[in-house]
């Protein structure tokens, strides 16, 4: 073994050692950056769990964080025409007056109606369950907006110029929460999850039985919004 070879061998074993401790790190970090050149995998399904008991009425830290992360900054004269990727909904049960508040965004369904109805296939679900709009082939027909049970999608009504380089968005196409796909692919959590001051949102891999989110869903009662539609949503709620 020459010197060079030995150096290579040492580096490789160090690398192996890192990989060996990676699962532990994995639990802490929720996600790992996917190596370059590797596609999203069917073995994962990204999801989110929102604990509405912790979600404070009047707090919209998640909404602000989303706007900053995704470059939602356009001035829109008519608020009805503004794009909203995530919004806070205040709920009140008329029967007993119980009130609570929760964030509503794309639920990243396993059976997304928006994908079913899209005439061109622009509305799509990535292998790891993230529902996206391929703006390259979106024709702006808005059929997905008609089909979405959560009003999660917005149509861009005016020209945009101040996009975040990592989050392209523009005139005449439909858009919605991407689960911060550009962050998730780097091993980070979505901006809203990171920003929540109450820690009410948990992000992780629903398919990994050891992940925080999967364990909590296995242990406590969680709800899918409009569960009657059997869409198998990736975003779950607790305490509705």
């Amino acid at each position: 073994m020459s010197n060079n070879d030995r150096r290579g061998f040492l580096a490789a074993s160090a690398g192996l050692g890192l990989v060996a401790i990676a699962p532990g790190v994995h639990l802490m970090q929720v996600a790992q950056a996917r190596p370059a050149g590797e596609p999203a995998s069917k073995l994962q399904r990204w999801g989110m769990l929102v604990d509405t008991a912790k979600c404070a009425t009047g707090c919209d830290a998640c909404v602000s964080a989303c706007a900053t992360e995704n470059g939602i900054n356009e001035k829109v004269a008519d608020p009805r025409q503004a794009a909203q990727w995530i919004r806070k909904i205040d709920l009140k049960d008329p029967k007993n007056g119980r009130q609570h508040s929760l964030p509503m965004m794309c639920q990243h369904c396993a059976e997304p109606p928006c994908v079913d109805v899209c005439p061109t296939g622009a509305s799509m679900k990535r292998a790891d369950g993230i529902v996206l709009v391929d703006r390259h082939i979106c024709i702006g027909c808005r059929y997905c907006m008609m089909a979405c049970p959560y009003k999660a999608r917005s149509f861009v009504h005016q020209p945009l110029t101040q996009q975040n380089p990592e989050v392209p968005r523009g005139l005449g196409c439909v858009e919605s929460c991407t689960l911060c796909v550009h962050r998730v692919d780097k091993g980070q959590k979505p901006a809203c999850v990171e920003a929540c001051p109450e820690g009410a949102m948990v992000f992780g891999d629903l398919e990994d039985p050891n992940s925080d989110i999967a364990r909590r869903i296995a242990q406590t009662a969680t709800t899918q919004v409009r569960a009657d539609l059997k869409l198998n949503t990736g975003v779950r709620y607790q305490g509705i």
Binding site: A67, R87, P159, Q163, N164, R169, C173
Partner: peptide, 17 residues
């Protein structure tokens, strides 16, 4: 450039809708 940001190192701001 209808959708992509044409400026290098651009940092977008956010305004809550």
């Amino acid at each position: 450039w209808d959708c992509h940001q044409p400026k290098a190192g651009y940092k977008a701001t956010g305004v809550k809708p």
